[in-house]
Every structure is written in structure tokens, then in C-alpha cells.
Nucleic acid binder design. Structure first.
Lengths: 132, 132
DNA sequence: TTTGTTATTGAAAACCATTTTCATTTGCAA
DNA sequence: TTGCAAATGAAAATGGTTTTCAATAACAAA
């Protein structure tokens, strides 16, 4: 099972890798593992909650390790719609999370949803993509 | 140009229509218009800023009319990961928008981004999907 | 009105990330 | 060993979206 291999790749990067990115890196160490298995493993890790799956709008899913219980690494994303660059930001995170939590409770009650997740992203153009 | 037709469809629903949904509705009134044109028109309307494009994770993009300058209809989304139902909520919106705006300014400055957009979504299971 | 040039259009084909299928291999218990 | 279920990867299928391309519409110049 490529579980370990996939987790290993994800825990040694702060980039936002696609399934194929991960496949290629895993492949260096375990050439026997196929792309299908990487997809299957990722799917499983996402279901378990060990990995987050994101969609930044470029047509392919990106994956990152879920932060541990300490949540020290919690961040949100700033996405450049020009070049696709993704910035992890931690500024304001505490305030955002506090508000989110409050909102979450309100929404859960009002709409009778069991909320498991939220998504906050900002979109814009980075310096390089604004100039030309 | 199906511009009018597409806008007309979008302004008469509060659902979150996919390109094909829109195509089918437009098709009732203008049978001559093809799916390709609907995609092209949507693309253009999104670029212009008249329409928002969303990804709720079910593999197809959804579109909704951008709220007018008054912004009276501004809302965020609550998505059921079970059945795909999407709830537009307006509760807490003011607080969210206020924080978002503040965050936006901070991020713009710090990361030198021209932020044009943000996305907030909550994911969970609705009552019906939780029971069985 | 003609002629020429460009923009618009839709049908069909191509694209491409992801999923399914399926035959094979592996793991493991009896 | 033997038998059977789970796991695996290669290849095929899927399906939303994008491209291609030939045909048509729009419009400008003559």
C-alpha cells in the first residue's frame, strides 16, 4: 500500500501537489506504484481526514497534509488567477477561525447541517502577473 | 449572441445552474443556440464580472448572477456533501464581509496581490443525508 | 450593390483529469 | 497447500469542458 509513500511525499513539501505530482515523486522511490493507486490512496486519506483536497480552479485537484491536532500549521490560501501561484497565509487566521466557528454553529442550528469543513480563499493577481 | 438569453435564465432562478442546465433552459426559447455558445458566453460573462463561477466539488461548474452594486443579495454557500444541495445563507454575512475586507487589505499589502475575489463555503451533511 | 475581410456560430472532435473495469497478484487463514 | 478475498496497475471508459474547423453572418470598402 502506497499510503506511507504518499504521506511521506506530502509531509516533505509545502507546495500544493496534484495527484500526478505526487505520483511522480512517489514513483522515484517506489517505481512499482501506479497512478491509479495514488488516486485511490489519496481518496482514502481524504476520507480519513489525514489529507485535504483543494480545488483552485485550474482543473486539477491539489492535496496537502491536514495539520495535526495542535493546528499550528493552519492556514488559508491566496491564489493568483494569473499564474496559479498559491500562497499559504497564516495572518489573520485566528480571527478568521474564530468567526468561522461562530458562523458554523449558527448555520448548523439554523439549517440543521452537520458542518465538517469550511473553505476560505482569496483570488487575485500577484505582482508579476499585474505588470505586463 | 446568447448573452441576453443566458443572463435572462440566470436572473430568473436562485438555483445554482451548471452550463448544461443553462443550455437546456436557453434552448427552450432559442433552440438555435448550441452548448458551445453557452460555454463561450458564460466564460465572457464571468470575465466581465457579471456572473460568478463556482466549484462545489461535484465536477461541474455552477454559475450565478453577480449581485448588483447594492449587493443586497450577497450570500455565501453551505454545501451538503451527501446530496449536493446548496443553501444560500445571508446570516452572518455582514460580519464575514467586514472581516474579509480587513483581511483582504492586509493580505494585499503584505503579499502584493491585487485581490479581486474571495470564496467562503461551508461543507457538511444536511438532515436527510445524516439519517440513513 | 458587389467584393473582400473579419467575427460568430455550432457540430463534431479533441482534451485531460479522474474513475472504472478487469485480469492478475498478493495476503492470509483453514 | 489450497482457496478465497482484498489489493493492484494497465488499459479503457467517463464526462465536463475546450478546440478545431467549415459555414455563415456582419460589416466595410470600392
Amino acid at each position: 500500500m502506497g499510503r506511507e509513500a504518499v504521506l511521506d511525499v506530502l509531509s516533505h513539501t509545502d507546495q500544493h501537489l496534484s495527484a500526478e505530482d505526487i505520483y511522480m515523486r512517489v514513483h522515484e522511490t517506489y517505481p512499482a506504484i501506479g497512478l491509479t493507486s495514488v488516486y485511490r490512496t489519496l481518496d482514502m486519506l481524504v476520507n480519513i481526514g489525514l489529507v485535504y483536497k483543494f480545488d483552485f480552479g485550474d482543473g486539477r485537484a491539489r492535496f496537502e497534509l491536514a495539520e495535526g491536532p495542535k493546528g499550528k500549521d493552519h492556514h488559508h490560501h491566496l491564489v493568483c488567477t494569473g499564474c496559479g501561484r498559491i500562497v499559504n497565509y497564516r495572518d489573520f487566521i485566528d480571527e478568521e477561525v474564530a468567526l468561522l466557528k461562530k458562523t458554523e454553529e449558527g448555520l448548523s442550528k439554523k439549517y440543521n447541517f452537520a458542518i465538517t469543513n469550511h473553505l476560505i480563499q482569496f483570488y487575485g493577481l500577484c505582482e508579476g502577473c499585474r505588470k505586463p
